[in-house]
């Protein structure tokens, strides 16, 4: 499988991009040390509650706050001190980009894993039990799918109030139905297979059949969709941040950094660095996951195997 992945230049590009961003996210404290370092240093990589479990004292610390160099309202072009320039109110763009990579992974992983999990459970229940369970769950997914995704996420975020956590909740609430439908379809065809009948004949419980026999054989399309969504969910979150619904000013978040441009839309030519750098980061992050997702699809979907496309 890995050999097939590496044979295709497009998949390799995707893999390289994703690895690049992963490295930046992991190395963020080294690449852009916060003005006041967090103590202990391990807390950059290990969640505070685990460290506290080992008896370590963790001081509250927020490296995601971009350091500010003055309060001047117009952006300043790249200089020696700020290699990528500063946004309005003098937030350093490079620092924001580096820590924003972590934010992107936080948002992407949290949202995608949540909707994947919800979708798997509901889709499996719906497909496996059929009848009224199926009818009820599928009608509910239809209601969620009747909304335009971004608009629905926007209204829910506005109701919950501003904030990156609210954005994530909204994306999860309107993101799961696609997965539930996909998994349901796969489960429907898998449950008629001989190995499921064999498991049932040998007296396995429904729970065991679903989680040990059906799901492992039906999970791949959902995984492909999840890898594509790693990019697109970050994109949606960035779009909501751009509209001013995301994290507060000065938080290292790509969408939030671009949202400053709303104040000088007619002077973008002069302040190009406030668009190009954060925009490029979002573009390549999404592109990387898309290419990787496409590659997974080619590798995992046996119907396409052997077909040169």
């Amino acid at each position: 499988m890995i050999k097939r992945l590496l044979k295709n230049p497009i998949s390799v590009t995707g893999l390289v991009l994703v690895l690049f961003f992963t490295l930046i996210a992991l190395a963020a404290p080294v690449l852009a040390p916060p003005p006041r370092p967090c103590q202990p240093l391990l807390s950059y990589w290990v969640p505070a509650w685990i460290l506290e479990g080992f008896g370590q004292k963790v001081q509250p610390c927020n490296p995601y706050k971009i350091p500010q160099d003055g309060r001047w309202a117009t952006p300043k072009p790249p200089s020696e001190k700020h290699p990528m320039g500063t946004t309005a109110y003098q937030y350093d763009i490079l620092y924001g980009l580096i820590w924003g990579t972590r934010t992107a992974f936080n948002v992407g992983l949290t949202v995608t894993l949540s909707i994947l999990l919800i979708g798997l459970v509901l889709g499996a229940l719906s497909g496996y039990y059929g009848r009224w369970v199926d009818e009820l769950l599928m009608r509910i997914t239809e209601i969620f799918l009747a909304f335009p995704f971004l608009v629905a996420a926007m209204v829910l975020t506005a109701i919950l109030g501003r904030g990156l956590d609210k954005v994530m909740i909204a994306l999860v609430v309107f993101g799961w139905p696609t997965y539930a439908r996909l998994v349901r379809g796969e489960v429907l065809s898998a449950k008629e297979r001989e190995y499921v009948l064999a498991a049932r004949a040998s007296g396995a419980s429904d729970f065991r059949i679903i989680f040990r026999h059906v799901l492992p054989n039906t999970i791949y399309p959902a995984l492909v969709l999840a890898s594509l969504d790693m990019g697109s969910m970050v994109l949606s979150a960035a779009a909501l941040s751009f509209l001013g619904l995301g994290s507060g000013t000065g938080y290292a978040d790509w969408g939030q950094m671009i949202s400053f441009t709303r104040n000088y839309l007619t002077d973008l030519d002069e302040y190009w660095y406030t668009v190009i750098y954060p925009g490029g980061a979002i573009l390549f992050f999404v592109l990387g996951w898309n290419l990787l997702g496409d590659a997974f699809r080619d590798v995992l979907d046996p119907r396409l195997r052997g077909v040169k496309s």
Binding site: G231, L235, A238, A239, F242, I258, T261, L265, T266, D267, L268, D269, E270, W272, V275, G279, I282, L283, V286, L287, N290
Partner: peptide
Amino acid sequence: YAFPTFVFGLLMLMLFYGR
């Protein structure tokens, strides 16, 4: 497919209006 709408829009505005 990967190009964020708002980045694309801002680039268009930058290029065709600003420049």
